[in-house]
Design a binder for these strands. Structure first.
Lengths: 144, 144
DNA sequence: TTGAATACTACGAGTTTCGTACTATCTTGA
DNA sequence: TCAAGATAGTACGAAACTCGTAGTATTCAA
């Protein structure tokens, strides 16, 4: 926890702007036709990581209104990517799980994300690659 | 240009997921009431950096339909953040410039972005801070 | 000078988000 | 035990946004 200098902050700001732009373009180019919108994709991934979760869990995690999440769930069910069942113990709740097709969609999504990470790493030499991973982990892991 | 290993790619993928989540939450928390949506904000920033540019320039840069950009420009003009004038030399074209109020909005936007960068850097010690900046610049600068 | 290209606008359809109001179910405490 | 409130989710409609089609005005080019 060392306070960065003004100059460092500005350097990173500029570098990150170019960085973001570069990978936004790459992501747009990779988008396929039957791609999910951002919310649906994040919802699907969350359900994949939290099988049996309820709608409210996803809504809280992704910070959207419950009705918005209801729509997203509807879309994912309609496309057979997830299943929505009432639970036994609390019959108000839903238990959400991904289908086989949903699992495949997640895998595709992860593969695309991974490809972006690969492109990032390819710009660096081996020592730098490990260093970037280490620094990213350190930043991601620090509590606010 | 060194091909990263499978393990490295997966490490970075996981680290980057946590990283992205952490800063998405931070960004959501920073969002104010009169905030612009993503397209409008990017449009405003581009016009700030390219005063006198035309609508097509922005649309091509941000990779959206011309009619979408027309709507975004409308919104920004309505909120007095930019000015839209016909040019002398080509009277089909618009010359877009930010207003004083628009410049302030950009400054606020940049300040928020910079604050995110500051939070990232604060997680690191001084040598790591410089290293992160260097690596980000290197990745951002590499041609696809 | 006329036909194609360019820069942009008008309009309307489709999608998404979200607030309000609602149903169904559970929980709690008198 | 049962009534009041809390909780999980849905139905519906308004507002915002993106974009395709069709149009106007202007410039370019042969």
């Amino acid at each position: 926890m060392t306070e960065p200098t003004q100059v460092q902050v500005e350097q990173l700001t500029r570098a990150f702007e170019r960085f973001t732009r570069r990978f936004k373009v790459a992501e747009a180019a990779a988008a396929t036709d039957n791609a999910l919108n951002a919310l649906d994709a994040e919802t699907l991934v969350f359900i994949g990581n939290n099988p049996g979760c309820g709608m409210g869990d996803v809504a809280r995690y992704l910070n959207v209104a419950l009705t918005t999440m209801s729509s997203a769930i509807d879309r994912l069910v309609r496309r057979s990517l997830i299943e929505r069942r009432r639970t036994e113990d609390d019959r108000r709740s839903l238990a959400l799980t991904v289908t086989h097709k949903g699992r495949q969609a997640i895998d595709d999504h992860v593969a695309a994300y991974r490809e972006l990470c690969r492109i990032m790493l390819r710009s660096l030499d081996p020592r730098e690659q490990d260093e970037l991973i280490r620094l990213t982990e350190k930043i991601a892991g620090t509590q606010a």
